[in-house]
């Protein structure tokens, strides 16, 4: 089923175009990595603040206001560039277990990020209410960082794990 879809997709004129214009895939991959660097750094700044390790002169809501728009905007560009790469080489990505794990982790981290954003919007001081709240901020930051690192590793491993057939 998936093989069938990959085959069909790779035969479309758009896929053919992406495959045969040599600079498209390197260029789109470069844009993809630059957006990964914006997301990882933005998430890093936010999570270090939640952990109470860095940026303490700024409030958590101040950090969120500064970095959340960059995270969402980069995710949109990552989605578009990712789709272009998939259309260009569907059989490299879709059946690849590293790619599938990456997508599962990505959905998880988006849920974590949405919950974080919802919480900070409802009450900017939520994480300062009690020691238990402070603890939950640290757990959120730890989970988010771990997920993003795993997503980046899976992304790189797509190139090394042969797609299962």
């Amino acid at each position: 089923m998936l093989d069938h879809f990959c085959h069909w997709l790779s035969e479309t004129p758009l896929s053919d175009f992406i495959q045969n214009v040599t600079w498209i895939i390197p260029l789109v991959q470069t844009i993809h990595i630059l957006c990964v660097s914006i997301v990882l750094s933005s998430v890093g700044m936010l999570d270090l603040r939640l952990l109470g390790v860095a940026g303490k002169r700024v409030t958590i809501s101040g950090m969120a206001a500064r970095f959340m728009p960059w995270i969402w905007a980069s995710l949109v560009v990552l989605l578009i560039s990712g789709v272009i790469l998939i259309v260009g080489e569907p059989a490299r990505d879709l059946p690849n277990s590293a790619f599938q794990l990456k997508m599962a982790l990505l959905i998880s981290v988006i849920v974590v990020t949405l919950v974080f954003q919802h919480t900070v919007r409802r009450n900017a001081n939520f994480w300062d209410l009690s020691p238990a709240h402070r603890h939950s901020a640290k757990v959120t930051a730890g989970v988010s960082m771990a997920l993003w690192v795993a997503i980046a590793v899976c992304g790189r491993f797509i190139a090394y794990i042969d797609a299962q057939h």
Binding site: I33, L34, V36, S37, I38, V39, L40, S41, S42, G44, M45, V149, A152, V153, R156, F157
Partner: peptide, 15 residues
């Protein structure tokens, strides 16, 4: 992978 993640953090934080 470690190289890519570290370089991403270098670039993003410099930006």
């Amino acid at each position: 992978s470690i190289h890519v993640i570290a370089l991403c953090l270098v670039v993003g934080s410099i930006v």
